[in-house]
Design a protein around this nucleic acid. Structure first.
Length: 533
RNA sequence: GCGUCCAUAGCUCAGCUGGAUAGAGCAAUGCCCUUCUAAGGCAUAGGCCAAAGGUUCGAAUCCUUUUGGGCGUACCA
């Protein structure tokens, strides 16, 4: 819709025209301040310029009016245009808001280490990534969702050790001296049981079998992670295991050519020459590659697979890492600009006003699964998707729990359910409703129709700006408009009943489509009884 | 110290490719169910957009500085 208007104006003025939402909807559907910039060039007052422009629009099949107000140009779309578009959308529901972007994108997100279940901080990146994924798919991008599994290195050894410690303390009843760093948490108990069942108790005490234990356990942990993500309706296309990439290390190292060098018995990457603060070690003196090495092989593998664009979603605590990975990409002979790293900022939790620390090693983490159980996938997804991902977010768990009825997700669901109910109450058949014209609606109704038809623009904007919160913002506003309209106008028995129901169906289509892009299923009815349970 | 993200209503946050009177939800106050689910609607109140400069017709938005925070600053992941 906006694209069409924008294209039309670009043609007319021979330049890009800024289109915005009028301050007041009664002014029209779209507005542009173009007269202000033209005024300077033409050396006339903006008001005069706007008047002249407005009167030059006489005949147009898209606009019913073009008016100038205080230097702004306000456009009102024609009834016919809105009618045609709304009717098309209802007959092609699955196509509504879709495009055919085609670009091949690799989206990597979550990628939490398989050393424990996901916590609430991971959930944010997960929701953000999955929402982007859904938006991109809707826009026609050929996008792959990938999880990179860090199953090599110290953290895996630590997992083996942690299971042994837990087992020796709980199964063998030993008095265990805990080292400084190890993992703790309830998830270890079943792992210990499983390990004993599979390997026998001996494995708990045999230090030389830590690795063996860990390699078995990481798969079990990955299963937990995948299951927890599934509960949030998040699914990955591919999993890449760090451990599977190291065979390639020598070749990749060689591929970086001048980008790496030897010094003090270690191998370094010359990342300082590529905007990093300093050069970094990639292979230690004892020959063990560092964490960075894993990411270098991985990114090389990504680029060799040949995508047009790469998006990584990382926790904000990794932001210092961006420049060194980009440096590596550049040494590998690829275009670092194709790699886009998005950050998901920290989530800090309060519980009854008390701050919660979220270090995985500390053990007192809030598990993602715990929150999903408390408030449900829909509410969690909605809250996280509603906040700009690069801003630190703070919320109180206890506040969150009691939020039930005031939760925006219910507000939107209720709007959708209302439409479904009222359509069911009407004596008109759906077929008849779809046949009627959307022309001849009054000001309020037409404005609602226009708002509902804006979804495609929102989807495009939310994805291209990577600001997914634009979608929930829009849905909230649309639901509010629906509720207001519903309150003010009685539908059943109205002389325009079928017409208004058709309008409502367009609104429902937008709500449903928008919710599904957030991984939330639209409800057809709200039940207070269910809520009590 | 350096890098980076941030600072908007009492609280949680939108708004940021510069544009018309800075918005929403929660919390507060007062109304609206003989009417399609009141999980709703209406109204009131609430702001020196952290501070100071600059750019210009025009700044919450762009630039600089300051202040106050988060995160990072490993041969840890």
């Amino acid at each position: 819709m906006k694209q069409r208007v924008s294209a039309l104006l670009r043609e007319k003025f021979g330049r890009e025209v800024v289109l915005e939402k009028p301050k007041d909807r009664t002014f029209g559907h779209f507005a542009t301040p173009i007269a202000f910039s033209l005024a300077k060039e033409l050396k006339k007052s903006p008001i005069v310029v706007a008047e002249e422009l407005a009167s030059s629009f006489e005949e147009s099949e898209i606009f019913s009016s073009v008016a100038s107000v205080k230097g702004y140009l306000n456009f009102r779309l024609s009834e016919n245009f809105l009618h045609e578009y709304g009717t098309w959308a209802l007959h092609n529901q699955a196509q509504f808001g879709k495009q055919e972007k085609k670009e091949k994108i690799l989206l990597e997100f979550v990628s939490a280490n398989p050393t424990g279940p996901l916590h609430i901080g991971h959930a944010r990146g997960a929701v953000y990534g999955d929402t982007l994924l859904r938006l991109a798919r809707h826009l026609g991008y050929d996008i792959t969702a990938e999880y990179y599994v860090n199953d090599a290195g110290n953290q895996i050894d630590l997992l083996g050790l942690s299971i042994q410690l837990e087992g020796r303390a709980t199964v063998l009843g030993e008095d265990v001296a805990y080292p400084e760093s190890y993992y703790r948490g309830e998830y270890l108990a079943p792992l210990v049981r499983g390990a004993v069942e599979r390997f026998g108790k001996e494995i708990l005490q045999d230090e030389s079998r830590q690795k063996e234990l860990a390699l078995w356990a990481k798969d079990a942990v990955m299963n937990i992670i995948v299951k927890d993500l599934g509960d949030l309706h998040i699914f990955f296309d591919t999993f890449v295991y760090e451990s599977s990439l190291y065979d390639d290390w020598e070749r990749v190292l060689h591929k970086m050519g001048e980008g790496v060098y030897e010094k003090e018995g270690k191998i370094w990457i010359a990342s300082e020459s590529r905007d990093d603060e300093k050069d970094r070690v990639v292979v230690r003196e004892d020959g063990r590659p560092t964490y960075l090495a894993g990411d270098i092989v991985y990114h090389n593998q990504k680029f060799e697979r040949g995508y047009e664009h790469y998006i990584n979603i990382w926790g904000a605590d990794h932001h210092g890492y961006i420049s060194r990975v980009k440096a590596a990409v550049s040494f590998l002979g690829y275009e670092p600009r194709k790699l886009e790293v998005l950050l998901s900022q920290m989530v800090s939790l309060l519980k009854d006003g008390e701050p919660y620390k979220m270090s995985k090693r500390a053990g007192n983490v809030i598990l993602m699964s715990e929150i999903v159980q408390e408030i449900g996938s829909d509410a969690l997804r909605f809250i996280f998707a509603s906040k700009k991902s690069d801003t630190a977010l703070e919320f109180d768990i206890s506040e969150f729990k009691k939020q039930d009825s005031s939760n925006p997700i219910f507000y939107i669901q209720y709007a959708h359910a209302r439409i479904h109910t009222i359509v069911g109450k009407s004596n008109f058949t759906k077929e008849h409703i779809l046949e009627v014209s959307l022309k001849g609606l009054d000001e309020n109704a037409q404005s609602l129709l226009f708002e509902a038809l804006l979804l495609p623009e929102i989807i495009e904007d939310a994805f291209s700006s990577r600001q997914v919160q634009k979608l929930p913002d829009y849905l909230k506003a649309l639901a509010a408009s629906l509720h207001r309209f519903y309150y003010e106008c009685r539908i059943i028995g109205n002389e325009d009943e079928a017409k208004l129901l058709k309008l409502f169906l367009v609104v429902a289509l937008s709500l449903k489509t928008g919710l599904s892009l957030m991984g939330i299923e639209a409800k057809n009815r709200m039940s207070k009884e269910e809520e009590e349970l």
